[in-house]
Design a protein around this nucleic acid. Structure first.
Lengths: 248, 248
DNA sequence: CGGCATTTTGACAATCGTCAATCAGTGTGG
DNA sequence: CCACACTGATTGACGATTGTCAAAATGCCG
């Protein structure tokens, strides 16, 4: 099975065979974690770099009254906590949403490796930066789009991200989250997520059953979410937009 | 007049006198830019590193139908676009909200400087990371807080950030934005911003007039926004929270 | 003073959240 | 194999927050 971290990075940088080897060894001893488990909690000391190899994890924060906001999904190939020994402790929590396979790489190991392999270092930093661009887009999504647009946007983004790591099956991908998780992601109530999903389904944009999401009309989903691939640095469509923007 | 970039970085790293000198020279030839001007537009090639020395700038995105979402404020000492020659072009725009004084540092200059002064390099990277933590918190703020909490949280955050660069006057600071700008920041309509500001005022939490914001009750503003300083790496209060968290 | 941007108000509508109940799916133990 | 429990999905009724529209008031600047 191809290594999702290698696949993710290869969208951003050309890796040499030895570099790929190093990355595969890095993620060799990963552990299975059940769903709904915290990998790190806000306030904890900085953990190792967490690399997700299977399943969905997320970064999230809790408010004192238990409102939860998920600020990022970590799908296979995504990692968290690259920034070396700064700051002193976590400003948010990381937890699993589904059963996951997760590698923990100590910071010392990671920095030694990045020193020895500048290509990997560069790739990892670019990936971290690309993830920040996703966060930025999520602000726009949550702040300025309707519930319908929001979910359309999210499902399209996830399609591209799954494709980038070879985990899309046609236009579909695994989606094992509950509607409550979706609500905490897109800042909607569970009930409203449910109603909006029904609208997306009855408009023929998506199918969602048995923990699998199928995009039934890729173009219409993309435009319904007002999706602009500008921010997805690993999306092949991005270059095309660039060219057309240059022409204007 | 003390250099806001130096002040900002000194919250994160101890700088040597020569390092401070280098930074001051770096920001010496800055240009004045009027309010409402774009410094870079989404899709443009990567510009120089932009360092704000006076005024409010912001990062923002526009949707096709002109909805706008501001995703970050750049106040004096803040910068944008540190990430070297990646990606190829901007995924969001940067513009001024008020009249600003802005330094543009070419990437070549910046990377040479960072190579020669690892202390500065480390400080700048930490600052960039700290800014990402702010973005993360904004997702929570916009997603999970009411309009009242949202504005309280923002005004408290800005107080801490202004203090960090020596620009708070007592518990007040410059705030030259319009209510429309505030709405595009916190994902509220202008009308609702107005109503919420009136509530904050009549509760005695803030005063806001003649482009100046005064926090009238710091503690109550902080708790109204459910403010947790965990994410503000330059907030002196942060360490205290850390200690008490460790005791629990 | 006149013009323009911004703030403020009021009335009304739409989106979205809450509450509470029901339905469906899954897994367990007898 | 079925009863049972539990989680998650779905529905309906209702209410609250927030947005929209439009107008009036205020403030700012030349």
């Amino acid at each position: 099975m191809p290594n999702p971290l290698v696949l993710k990075l290869e969208n951003l940088v050309r890796l040499s065979a030895p570099e790929r080897d190093v990355l595969e060894r890095l993620t060799r001893d990963a552990v299975h974690v059940g769903p709904g488990q915290d990998l790190v909690r806000e306030g904890d000391a900085l953990p190792s770099v967490l690399i997700v190899l299977q399943g969905y994890a997320c970064r999230y924060k809790l408010l004192p009254d238990a409102r939860r906001q998920i600020t990022a999904y970590l799908i296979p190939g995504d990692f968290s906590g690259l920034h070396l020994p700064f700051p002193d402790r976590m400003d948010c929590s990381v937890g699993t949403l589904s059963a996951c396979l997760v590698a923990r790489v100590p910071h010392a190991t990671m920095s030694a490796l990045m020193e020895e392999h500048p290509g990997i270092a560069s790739a990892m930093r670019r990936a971290a930066f690309a993830d920040e661009a996703v966060l930025n887009e999520w602000v726009v999504n949550i702040g300025r789009r309707t519930s319908y647009e929001r979910l359309a946007h999210l499902f399209y983004e996830l399609l591209i991200r799954h494709r980038a790591v070879g985990l899309a099956h046609g236009d579909g991908y695994d989606f094992p989250l509950t509607q409550a998780d979706l609500g905490d992601t897109m800042a909607l109530s569970t009930v409203h997520v449910n109603r909006t999903l029904q609208a997306l389904r009855s408009d023929g944009l998506i199918g969602l059953e048995r923990k699998r999401l199928d995009v039934l009309d890729v173009e219409r989903l993309k435009s319904s979410g007002m999706f602009n691939p500008n921010y997805l640095y690993f999306d092949p469509d991005r270059r095309q937009t660039e060219r057309s923007a240059a022409t204007v």
